[in-house]
Amino acid sequence: MNLFRLMGDVSHVLAVFILLAKIWRTRSAAGISGRSQILFTIVYLARYMDLFFSFISLYNTVMKLLFISASCATVYLIYFKFRATYDGNHDTFRIEFVLVPSLLLAFIFHYSMSFFELAWSFSIFLEAVAILPQLFMVTKTGEAENITSHYLFALGSYRALYILNWIYRYYTEGHFDPIAVCAGIVQTILYCDFFYLYVTKVLQGRKLQVLP
């Protein structure tokens, strides 16, 4: 474990709790893409299946349980408890367009042809694009509430910090994971446009408006 990865995980947990707290406190899923949350749930279920078979550390197990339960809880709040506030008309990104390519990529790029390795590769590729429905929804609604912007900033920062972690591990341990690194770079690039808007708008106290 290194500081970059720890900060990345903290940023990730922060994002998950910002979103959960926002929906719970405002009792509304307005502006939130339920489809992205479904994709994140699939990502965590596919990646953390080894939870019951291999013990890495208490930290690892606790975090996996936390991400799986928080993403399931978020999907539940959006599609069940606060379903009336879910903005389905603007949450229209076809998730098949990210599910199928991720599955294909997993069959091409994996570290071994075992079910767990295929599921892991699939989850890595899917996570890279899982935010697309949310970013698509922000462009469709033309804006994002401040709290949603903070959620996206924390979520985007998590994988950006992981890139620093991979650089650090490469130079200190010679650790290199090409699948995770390539997908992580793509994932972070997808947030760049948002990062720019966040820094120039939200941090100046203005609302995040995606210029129509």
């Binding site: 990865r5 995980d9 990730h12 080894d50 291999s54 890495i56 550390s57 690892n60 975090m63 996996k64 991400f67 570290y111 071994s112 075992s114 390795e117 892991w120 992981y162 972690n165 650790h175 994971d177 699948i179 995770a180």
Partner: peptide, 10 residues
């Protein structure tokens, strides 16, 4: 490959 090495990252 990495499958031998333990996947210790989230």
């Amino acid at each position: 490959g990495l499958s031998k090495k333990v996947k210790d990252e989230l």
